[in-house]
Computed example of a mutant assay.
Amino acid sequence: MTDPLPPPSDRQKTFSMERTEATRITLIGMVLDAVLGITKVITGLLFHSQALIVDGIHSFTDVASDLVVVAVMRVSRQEPDQEHPYGHQRIETLGTMVLGSLLIAVGAALAWDNTLRLLNPDVARIPEWPILVAALVSVLSKEWIYRYTRRVGLAIRSDLIVANAWHSRTDAFSSVVVLVSTVGAMMGYLWLDILAAIAISLLIIHIGWKFTWDSVKELVDTGLSPEDTERLRNTAMGIEGVRDVHELRSRRMGQDILLDIHLVVRPEISVSEGHQIGMQVATAMRATMDNILDINFHVDAENDDDQSPTSEKLPDRGQIRQALQEVMPGELPPNSRLRLHYLKNRVHMELFLEPAPHQEQQDTRELARQMESHAWFGSLRIWYSHP
């Protein structure tokens, strides 16, 4: 049984709004990255700063990542369809992984370039003061776009947008390195700014690795943390009628959570009561964690973890009625009702009869004794209703 999702129209409106916000902030960042990239490369060439040239190339990688983000967000925020009934958010996860990999590559390239500069400090030329101006403008503008993009990413619950915001901040870090290296070069300490550049490059690699590894864990359906899983289990156990939770599985899809849960309830309750208990559990879980997209709950009459699950080879209702008919002296009344309980690989039966006037009641113990010839027989109770 599944807890119903929000109406498709509401979900599509949400997807459309999120896609629009993501595209708008990404295009703003892309224009800014292009302008900064051109400015830093030209300034670095004219005023002798290899660091600023590399920083400008880093800005162009931001432009490439922005194009990836725009393309991925348009696809990942589409409405679920027959081929993707849970939606397309995993495409966003894939995009986040690509973006993280790009951060690793850029960080590694910067680290290698600055390591070579550290080993050969004599080849470096002293930069001029316009480098400081270009680097400072880059730091301020990239820090602004980082904060703006991150705020939008958190608002629309998009790991990809948040990752792109951090990519913007790595550009600001690179520009800080340029500031430090320029001041250090002007004071005669070329090795200091190069060492700082390597440290920032390693930080860029670390950020890229975090996003890549988190995406990989999501793509292989890594579940929630033990703490979150236990919190959800306790929530389910707090609902009246739940005897046990013997299986709780989770996986992520973007910022959303998908759950499968098995609820143990009393075996004698009705199907509708079991379903109602499941719906109450789903509501309580959504109140505990508001990013749960889908809850698939299974209602069990016994705990399959403590014993062998009830076999699917047990007789069905028609076969059981036929077995009862064979041991009963007369025909089963057409208005009789049979309630079956499949527990511990046995069938426990409740037979509800409305006997005709002056008809003798059946000897339940004798009927049960005759039914014991069937290996699957558990127990028999007969209920009579009288006008």
Rank of each mutant, 00 (worst) to 15 (best):
A111I: 00
A109E: 11
I269M: 13
N114C: 02
I239S: 07
I382Y: 01
L258R: 07
V176N: 03
W112H: 11
L202W: 06
L27K: 08
R151K: 15
R251L: 06
E247D: 11
H386L: 12
V347R: 00
V176P: 03
H48P: 01
T149Y: 12
R317W: 03
L219E: 11
I239W: 08
S373H: 12
K217Q: 14
L179I: 14
D81A: 09
L232N: 13
G208M: 03
Q50T: 13
S141V: 10
V220K: 10
A375L: 12
L232E: 11
R346I: 00
P80G: 08
I295D: 08
V106D: 03
D305M: 13
Q359T: 15
L263G: 05
S141C: 05
R169N: 02
H262F: 06
W191P: 03
A282F: 08
S225M: 06
K344Q: 13
I194G: 03
D363N: 15
P357W: 07
I269D: 09
P355R: 07
T310H: 03
V106Y: 01
Y148G: 04
N345T: 09
D300Y: 10
D363K: 09
L132I: 10
L314S: 05
H275F: 04
R365H: 07
D214A: 13
V242Y: 02
H341I: 05
F173N: 06
E92L: 01
R19C: 15
N120S: 14
R286M: 08
F60E: 09
I156F: 03
Q322E: 15
I292S: 08
P387Y: 07
V72A: 14
S175C: 02
Y189W: 15
E240R: 14
W376V: 11
K210W: 02
V299N: 06
W144G: 11
E331C: 02
Y86K: 08
Y189D: 02
V35T: 10
P6G: 03
M30N: 08
M328A: 13
V98Q: 03
L136Q: 05
L219S: 09
L110M: 14
V245R: 04
F60A: 08
R369P: 00
V347A: 08
I28V: 15
V69K: 11
G153L: 06
L353V: 05
G87Q: 06
M1F: 10
H374I: 02
R339M: 09
V75T: 13
A105P: 02
S9G: 00
M30L: 15
D306F: 12
V183H: 10
H348P: 05
S250I: 01
R125A: 13
H348Q: 08
E312P: 10
P334K: 12
A124E: 05
H386D: 14
I53C: 05
T149N: 13
G87P: 06
G254R: 04
L367D: 09
R19D: 06
V271W: 06
L119F: 13
D55E: 14
A287Y: 00
Q255V: 00
G29M: 01
A51S: 15
K40Y: 02
L136C: 12
A34Y: 04
R125M: 14
V63H: 07
I131L: 04
A51E: 04
N234T: 08
Q78I: 00
T149M: 08
V180T: 14
E21Q: 15
F47R: 08
S168F: 01
